[in-house]
Each structure stands twice: as structure tokens, then as C-alpha cells.
Nucleic acid binder design. Structure first.
Lengths: 342, 342
DNA sequence: CTGCGTGCAGAAAGCGGTTTCTCAAAGGGT
DNA sequence: ACCCTTTGAGAAACCGCTTTCTGCACGCAG
């Protein structure tokens, strides 16, 4: 193998007739070096096409300029948008991004956690699903900066930065909207109940109902899986029963699309016979037919903010943890109102 | 900052009463170490919660166990699926994945290329869009393994591994299908013509037409941008003209969805009045209404294969470059045939 | 003219592993 | 019983960069 080894700082130093220390100083711009030597070093570096070795720099400086992002699935459009936000903010701050999809599988998560520890990344972001406090504290103890996006540990008191949507309010927004339209038989297709996000949205739904002095029929609350198939199955169950709902709140858009598919196949017209609202506002929510009314989360922004928080923590690990709660927004489209989207 | 420094190999060595070299040997499983010492070392390592430092290991061993993936946009579902394939295959081979979205912007690409060189990754995969041969050869020269996914350099002779879909055949499949349905006025909404993929699909379209002794009307070939908006605009142009097409081949699904939106707004029925076929078979193609007939590419598989090729090259950099060309597949749905999808 | 502060640059000590080299001890053959 | 080979394990060099420490030269004040 013709590994023409790339130039090192020693090569540059020799060519410029200075010491490696001086080359390092010039390249890092920190210390005062005479203009003349600086010039010589820069020329030598260019001539040799020098690029500092990443591992050596990391080892010596104890930072990697790399952030990790662990999420359930990069192919899931919701998380992909968050990831893009993280990536952009990370790039702006001079970091690159290591991404791992865990499928929510503790084993895969363990695998990544193990491979990221020990100085591989300066900080790590967990997106989606739930996380046990013990694991998290292990990270904190190891001195790795940690942040959460759209995810919370069950124990509320773990001191960690987090960026979240107000899921309780989001759930309430959805149900209020359906109630405003005059519906009384509301179904909720929830996410997995072990996921905090799903529970919160359900709490909000109950709250909104209570505000109006009504309560949600437990028989119309079905636990789904946050996937298209789960929405489809849930709808099938709901409409095989004697007294089906007139409105459905699916706790994310993918399930809403599954519900929509079932309703179409069953010949049930939306929104005329059944109203439907989703959650997330993924890109395809606007493209489905009928277009999906939904509760929008600022996904890209959440990613950006989470990365920024993490970068700031890297700069000052002592500052108090911050928790950013963003407000969700009702986006009216065709599955709840008969008029076309403006 | 309470950086309770994590244990090093020296700490483990001291605790086990052996030399650091022995610890290294035990942990890497290579050399023969007496069972007794091995036992002592493992216990010490566990007791200290030892994890080898990544940077140190990389510096010393000259490998990073990291792969880079540069793509236009991780939030684009087409590339996200490829990325997931890459990630899974990489993980299986013991590598983690660094991802960078370039937006096809040469500047961003330069930025990433610069930050990935110099031993940050063992190999790098470029997905999508075009790549100049000079840049690529720069990488090859530096001894970084390189692979391409769904992307080709314009110069056909650059010796590099690549995984591609047969885009010419895909374009031909699409047009053959439309011709088989009896259409004669075919429009093509292409991707940007600077992109090889787009040009190839158009070449295939022309070939398929020629096979039947017809030729595509140049006025019905519109250059788009591979985005939803581009499909919408193209459709608007096509149908503002005196003699609109009866069938449209959009060179990717996002544009097809844009076309679909225009047709719906214009009250043109699909497939009754106009047939439509896309390309890629992104997840949402099946969920649109009417569901999109399209030319499927094995995206996830392409990612997997590309990563596998790269890993194999890492093991043997001398083997001849391989070019894997996967066959696209026609997926019948509702936008070309009146019957429902089975 | 001497002493001291200041600025620039080199020497050298890490950072935390891997790996070669060396050596001691054990094992085997005659 | 002796010599040579093999095996296990430590010493030390090295990977390439950062950073502290040291020293030299110069300028200025006493």
C-alpha cells in the first residue's frame, strides 16, 4: 500500500526552519509569533499541503470538536429534521456530528453509548423516546456534556439541558380544536405509554376535555406505536366497534396518515364524517390528501437550540442546566375543516 | 470543573500489578497472556470502569473506526434512507458514522472535506449529486478510502468504488410504462441537468421512446430541481400551454408530488386525464393520494452495499474498484392505472 | 554601565494508547 | 546435564500535536 504519509508538523517546521512549537502557534493563531516566521510557516504548510492530524490534536488538546447525536431512526422524517438542525448549529460552532440510530433498542443504545464514551465526542445529544436517569448520570459523571431533545428523563430532577415542545399544551390544542368543531366522541390514538411524550400529550388531551366539562371515553383511547401501521390498526379497531368516534387525535403524523389510509379504504369521508388531527407537522402532512391538520413542532429549531445549548455548556460546564420549552402550534388543513387550506 | 479524569491504561496496569503493555494486549485480545494475568487485568479494568481513550488509540493505531458520509441533505427522505443503510452496515463492521449535509453547496462541501481529512475518518462516502474528479483524486492520494453512492464522477475512469441504480434503465422503464398505457404526449420533468443522475434518466427516456419509434417532444421536457416546488412549477408551465401532455414522468418523487398538487388544484384528474410516474419510491409515495406509481430504487440497500464496499476496501486497499449497478423496479400504484393497488 | 522586565522561539514533557524490542524463564531435544 | 528455542511480560519508543518551561536578546530605567 502506497501510504504516502501526509506531512506532519515536523515536516513543516523543518521546511520553514523553525521549531514544531512555532508551527503549532502559528496554525492555532494564539501566541505572538513574528510576522516573518509566521509567513514562512504558512508558506511551508501550504507547500506541503499540511493538515493537522485530528487524533493527535484531540489527544493533546483533550477536545474532539465532535458532537454525538443518538436518535431512534435517522430515516424517520421527524428526527431527520431535528438532526439537520443539530448539524447546522454544530457546524456553525465548528463541530462535526456523529449520528447513531438506536431504534429505541436498549442494546443498540448501549452499543453506541459504549463506543462514544472515552473521549470520542465532546458532548452528546439524545433525541426522542425515554432515557433512564442512571445511564444519563453515568455520562454526566464521566465529564461528557449531555443534552436532550424531545426527550425527558422520567425523574424530573436530573440536572441536564433539554429542549422540548410543550406536549401537554399540544395535546390540549388538538382536543380543543376538535371540541370547538362540535365533536363529542373523540378518539385518541396515543404513542407507546412508556414514552413520556405520548403520556404528556394524553394528559393535555384530558385537560382540554376537562376544561369543557367533558371527559374522554376510555374505550376510545388506543395505544399505538407512532408508526403508520399503528394508526391503521387503531382506526380499524375503532371502527369495528358499535359506536365509533366522530373525531380522532393521532399523537403523531405518521399514525394520522395510517388512520387516513384506513378511513379511505373503509369509504369514510374526511373531514365530513370523521375529523382527524395529527402531531409534529412533518413535511408530508401538507402533501397528504386530504392535507393533514396537525399540531406543529419546531423540529429544526429544536435541533438547533439543543446543539447551541450543548456548545455553550462545553464552554462553561458549571452553568445551571437550562430547559427550553417551545410552544406547539395548530396548523389547519383539510382533515378537520371542510374549506380548503388558504 | 470537576473533571474526574477517567482511568488510563496505566491505572489499570498499576492496579493489576502488570505493565501497560500487558493491559493493552489483554484488552485487544491479540497476544498470548497467561490466564492468570488476563484475569487480573480484566478485574482491574472493570473495577476502575476503564474505557480506552479513543484519540490515543486512533493516534497510535492509525485508524479511527469512523466513516464519513457526505450527502446533500439528511432531512431529505431519499438520502435519509441511504444514510440508514450506511449506518447499519457500518455499525455491523464496528464503525461509527460522521454525517455532513452539504446542500450541494461546494463551499459546505469544501468545509466538510477539509474537516474530515487528516485522519479523522478511515473512509468517506459521497452520496448524491456530482463530484469533480480532481477533488476525488485528492482524497485517493491522501490515502483515504473513498466510495460513491448514487453519484458518479463525470469522468468515467476514476478508479473508485460506487453503488448506483441503473438510471438509464429506470428512465426507460418509466417511459415504457407510459407508452404501454397508450400515451403519446409524454412530458418529462427532469432534475438539474448538471446532475448525472438526471441526465441518465433522460437518456433512458429517450431510448425507450426510440425503441417504439417515437420521439419525445422537446417542448415537453422541463428542467426541475428535484424538489416539490419544482414539480409544481413545471406542471403549471406544461398546462398553461396549448397542447398539454397526457402523461408525465417526473424524475423523482418529490417533484411528482408537486406535479400532483398542481393537477389537483387545477382540477385535472389523475390518472384519468393525466398519468403520472415518479422515481425513487420514497416512503411517502405509497401514502399520497392518489398513490404514486414510481420507479423504485433500493435506497437502504444501496447504503448498506456502499458501506460494505468501503469496509472491504479498508481491509484491502489494492483490490480493483468495484461498481455495483442495481436494477430499478416499476411500482404500480394509482397515478397511472385506474385500478387500485392490490 | 549594569540590572531587570518583556517578547519571541526552542526544548521538552506530556496526552494515552500500541507495538517493537529485549530479556528472563521455561521447555524440549540430545 | 547443557544448549537452544519458545513463550510471556516489561521497557521504551513512537503516533503527532499542544503547552509549559526555559533561555536568549533586546530595550529601558536606575
Amino acid at each position: 500500500m502506497i501510504t504516502l504519509a501526509s506531512a506532519t508538523i515536523y515536516d513543516v517546521a523543518r521546511r520553514a526552519g523553525v521549531s514544531p512549537a512555532t508551527v503549532s502557534r502559528v496554525l492555532n493563531g494564539n501566541h505572538r509569533v513574528s510576522p516573518e516566521l509566521r509567513q514562512r510557516v504558512l508558506e511551508a504548510a501550504r507547500a506541503l499541503n499540511y493538515a493537522p492530524n485530528y487524533s493527535a490534536r484531540s489527544l493533546s488538546s483533550q477536545r474532539t470538536a465532535t458532537l454525538g447525536l443518538l436518535l431512534p431512526d435517522i430515516a424517520n422524517p421527524f428526527f431527520a429534521e431535528i438532526a439537520r438542525g443539530v448539524e447546522d448549529a454544530a457546524a456553525e460552532a465548528g463541530y462535526t456530528l456523529l449520528i447513531g440510530s438506536t431504534d429505541g433498542d436498549p442494546l443498540r443504545e448501549q452499543h453506541y453509548v459504549a463506543s462514544l464514551q472515552a473521549g470520542r465526542v465532546d458532548g452528546i445529544l439524545f433525541a426522542g423516546a425515554n432515557l433512564g436517569a442512571p445511564l444519563l448520570e453515568g455520562w454526566l459523571v464521566r465529564g461528557v456534556a449531555v443534552g436532550l431533545v424531545d426527550r425527558l428523563v422520567d425523574e424530573d430532577d436530573v440536572p441536564v439541558d433539554a429542549v422540548l415542545t410543550d406536549n401537554v399544551e399540544g395535546g390540549a390544542l388538538a382536543v380543543r380544536h376538535l371540541l370547538n368543531l362540535g365533536h363529542t366522541r373523540l378518539a385518541v390514538v396515543t404513542g407507546p405509554q412508556r414514552v413520556r411524550t405520548a403520556r404528556d400529550r394524553l394528559v393535555g388531551a384530558h385537560q382540554a376535555a376537562a376544561e369543557r366539562g367533558v371527559s374522554l371515553d376510555p374505550d376510545l383511547i388506543i395505544e399505538g406505536n407512532f408508526k403508520e401501521s399503528g394508526g391503521y390498526q387503531a382506526a380499524r379497531i375503532l371502527f369495528s366497534r358499535p359506536n365509533p368516534p366522530t373525531a380522532i387525535f393521532a399523537q403523531n403524523d405518521m399514525m394520522a396518515l395510517g388512520v387516513l389510509r384506513y378511513l379511505e379504504e373503509a369509504g369514510i369521508r374526511v373531514p365530513d364524517e370523521v375529523a382527524l388531527i395529527g402531531f409534529d407537522d412533518i413535511a408530508f402532512a401538507a402533501l397528504s390528501r386530504p392535507a393533514l391538520t396537525t399540531i406543529a413542532q419546531p423540529k429544526y429549531e429544536m435541533g438547533r437550540l439543543a446543539a447551541q445549548l450543548l456548545v455553550e455548556r462545553l464552554a462553561d460546564s458549571q452553568q445551571a442546566p437550562r430547559r427550553l420549552v417551545l410552544q406547539p402550534r395548530l396548523v389547519l388543513r383539510q382533515t378537520t375543516v371542510v374549506h380548503r387550506e388558504a
